[in-house]
Simulated scan of single mutants.
Amino acid sequence: MQVLPTIRLATTADAQAIAALSRDAIEHGLRWRYTPARILAAIRSRTTNVAVAHANDEMHAFAIMDYADTTAHLVLLGVQATQRRRGFGRHLLAWLEDAARVAGIERIDVECRADNPGAIAFYRNQGYRVQDVVARYYDARIDAVRLAKTLRTPAV
């Protein structure tokens, strides 16, 4: 039986685990940029949501989303390798999209590594559309695929 995750905003106590998951699941092979200090800054930011997905008293996924006036940027979304394809990422993304709609956000943008076809397929399955490819986006050596999802039509 699949357990649905509990999703909540991260606390400062989550920063170390989030940073470690980012390093292991997203930033592997790159310089570690999302250190505990940077995660703490995101948790404390008034324009950022850092959310975590828990099940069985363990954190299995996290996401960071920055908000502007009408757009949001999904900075990171990571799922423990042993918990992938169990709905944690999908539920977490849906939770963030709902929060973005409430905030009046029209579009969410995200980049993912071009060498990660699983991530690209995940976002496409959630309604994100490829916008372009950004050459050498990560550490000036790995391309990024930029995707976006329209949540609502811009007001005129």
Rank of each mutant, 00 (worst) to 15 (best):
I7D: 02
I7N: 03
R8T: 11
L9E: 08
L9N: 07
A10P: 08
A10E: 06
A10R: 05
A10G: 10
T11D: 10
T11G: 13
T12F: 15
T12D: 12
T12Q: 14
A13T: 09
A13F: 12
Q16H: 14
Q16T: 12
A17Y: 12
I18G: 00
I18L: 02
I18M: 03
A19K: 02
A20H: 10
A20S: 09
A20V: 10
R23V: 01
D24M: 08
D24F: 03
A25K: 10
A25H: 14
A25W: 09
E27G: 00
E27K: 00
E27Y: 01
H28K: 09
G29S: 07
L30A: 11
L30T: 07
R31G: 04
R31Q: 09
W32V: 06
W32G: 02
R33F: 05
R33Q: 05
R33D: 01
Y34S: 06
Y34L: 09
Y34R: 02
Y34D: 04
T35Y: 03
T35K: 04
P36G: 03
P36L: 06
A37F: 07
R38N: 03
R38S: 02
R38F: 06
I39Y: 03
L40M: 13
L40T: 10
A41D: 00
A42I: 03
A42M: 09
A42R: 07
I43P: 11
I43C: 08
R44T: 03
R44Y: 06
R46H: 07
R46F: 04
T47K: 14
T48D: 00
T48F: 06
N49Q: 08
N49S: 10
V50R: 10
V50K: 10
V52R: 02
V52D: 01
V52G: 00
A53F: 06
H54W: 11
A55M: 11
A55Q: 10
A55E: 05
N56W: 10
D57T: 15
E58Q: 15
E58T: 14
E58V: 14
E58I: 14
E58P: 12
M59P: 12
M59H: 14
H60R: 15
H60N: 15
H60P: 05
A61D: 00
F62E: 00
F62C: 01
I64V: 03
M65Y: 05
M65R: 03
D66C: 15
D66F: 12
Y67S: 05
Y67N: 04
A68Q: 14
A68C: 09
A68N: 13
A68K: 12
